[in-house]
Design a binder for these strands. Structure first.
Lengths: 346, 346
DNA sequence: TTGAAAGCGCTAACAC
DNA sequence: GTGTTAGCGCTTTCAA
């Protein structure tokens, strides 16, 4: 491991301090000296030892994004926004994959505590909320896609309740009354919120909420498939399905097809998330699109403020969703609403 | 920023060296001392400064995986294998997303050069091959999914030529003669290899390779769709399509459907990659499955050998693919062959 | 505008 | 078994 600052200094006939200045505060160095130093740096192909620099300055210019799963277009969309904003400010973004295991989440947090990263953005958290809260008091941290109610942890999210309500209201508007809901795992706030929106829509339209029409899935394609089979086995079958995410909606469609039903003619299906596959799917899925890029961007902005010690005027941001009508619900398409960023990146 | 090793040492009435030993070589410290030190560490809630440690030891125990795109189930599969193997050896895996931009690839390489990561795995490279070669001589580096012909850079990949040939041979075997190919961008070796496999299959079966039946796509769903429309507009239309990846195969299916064709009855389609969506797609896609997990695992093993300075017996590994017959080609399904790891992780 | 020098917190010879 | 101590390469006062 080669050339050090002192080698550059020696060859350029200056002190290491001057070399360091050329690198960080070039304007404080006389032009001739600066040029000389730069030419020696080039000549020796000097690479500063970042480990030393980071140690000395106690910062890395790296921010870490903790993702529950990398094969999820929702997360990718958010990450794009984060990366965009980070690059503008000279930060590198690295990703830590947890594979939805909370222990990996705790492990990655160590990187933050050990100052191996200047800040962290959590895309969905499974850790204890008091722990997150206390972490957030000590280190730059932002939650995206979720937020901890009551706790003042900087976060960016959407209004799951009202977005879901809107989706279900659409089904009601086009004539459905027997609307079933396939929920996410109800231990997650996000699932409960979407369920809540479903109930609100029904109640506000004087439609009875029938427990039989609500089945708990786990956000996987398979669970959508299985819960759909259950729903179609009950006495008075639904005419529409609101699934808490697109994967489950697609599973439901698959089940419907296998039962010989046509979607949307025989049964309407609405999903949530607008994953890139939802427009490719046959029938193209009606769904709720989160403003992913903006969520990422906003999260990164909040994180930078914390890193720079700027007090946050507001800690919790809630962004607007788009409801995208495609084929699977039988209404007429409003696809032009779809923003370009989220369209065709499979 | 708080408690340092010297604080622990003082309170425990030992030297910093002993504290350090307790942390790294506990067996060399007398039990009583060790317990004492550990209790003080707990009491003070001491967190070692990793930046200092990394600086001092000149290693990070972090390995960086450079991914062209995070929303791609092929890469996710490989990453799982990498993470599994890394965890077994006490390494953390972080991901750097390039969004398919070569400049981001060059930027991430800086992390390696600056020793901010102990090693790097590139999932598909767009950088100059001589640059990669020279990088590889100086730093631990592995290429996965691709390899640079002739250059002795450690790499793990599949045999794109013979896997493709096998896929096309299957189509021939079930009776097709007019088989079209939608290629990937031909500037990539991977696309040329798959094209090559296609040609070999035809030639070995005395079927003329017609240029009209070969259309260049760019691996996107849209390009599959567009090229399919072109293929179906020529005079003697094909009865089967081999697409160089699943996205394009799905685009082709979509186009076929829109033309009123039934897949596979009117036209057979085969893809490549076995992305998680391919089994959900309607019709479920016949495709080539790469041994993703094993590729990741093998890559990480090769990387570890380099980090540990173990000479590599062999630098380039080529792993076997599975050909998975599902609905889209009209043959009978052999889906049970599908290995569990790669099945349902959307 | 530049240089000298004191560390940053930790590790690992080396000595006892 | 344990302590002393010399750095790792860089940044940043402070003084000139």
């Amino acid at each position: 491991m080669g050339v050090k600052m002192r080698d550059v200094a020696k060859l350029a006939n200056v002190s290491v301090a001057t070399v360091s200045r050329v690198l960080h505060y070039p304007e404080t160095v006389k032009e001739a000296t600066r040029k000389k130093v730069l030419s020696v740096i080039a000549e020796l192909n000097y690479q500063p030892n970042m480990l030393a620099r980071q140690f000395r300055r106690n910062e890395t210019n790296i921010i870490l994004v903790v993702v529950p799963s990398i094969m999820n277009t929702v997360f990718s969309g958010i990450i794009e926004g984060i990366e965009y904003e980070a690059a503008r400010h000279g930060y590198r973004v690295l990703l830590g994959n947890t594979n939805r295991k909370v222990e990996n989440e705790y492990d990655l947090v160590e990187l933050l505590k050990q100052k191996q990263t200047d800040g962290m953005i959590l895309l969905s958290e499974r850790m204890d909320s008091n722990y997150i809260k206390s972490l957030s008091e000590e280190y730059p941290l932002v939650l995206a896609t979720a937020y901890i109610e009551g706790l003042r942890v900087p976060s960016v999210s959407i209004d799951n309740v009202s977005s879901s309500r809107e989706a279900v209201e659409h089904l009601i508007r086009i004539g459905h009354k027997e609307i079933a809901h396939i929920t996410g795992p109800l231990q997650f706030a996000i699932s409960r919120s979407r369920y809540q929106g479903y109930k609100q829509a029904l109640m506000q339209n004087n439609i009875e909420v029938r427990n039989m029409l609500v089945q708990e899935g786990d956000f996987t394609f398979e669970s959508g498939y299985n819960q759909m089979l259950k729903l179609m086995a009950i006495e008075k079958t639904p005419t529409a399905i609101f699934a808490a995410n697109d994967e489950m909606a697609m599973g439901a469609v698959k089940a419907a097809k296998e039962l010989g039903l046509n979607v949307p003619r025989d049964i309407a299906v609405v999903g949530f998330d607008n994953i890139s596959f939802s427009s490719i799917f046959d029938p193209a899925l009606t769904t709720v699109a989160q403003p992913l890029f903006e969520m990422g961007q906003k999260s990164m902005k909040l994180l930078l403020q914390q890193i720079q010690g700027v007090p946050l005027l507001k800690a919790q941001y809630i962004l607007e969703c788009d409801f995208i009508v495609r084929e699977s619900c039988g209404g007429k398409s409003n696809e032009k609403v779809l923003n370009k960023k989220s369209s065709h990146n499979l």
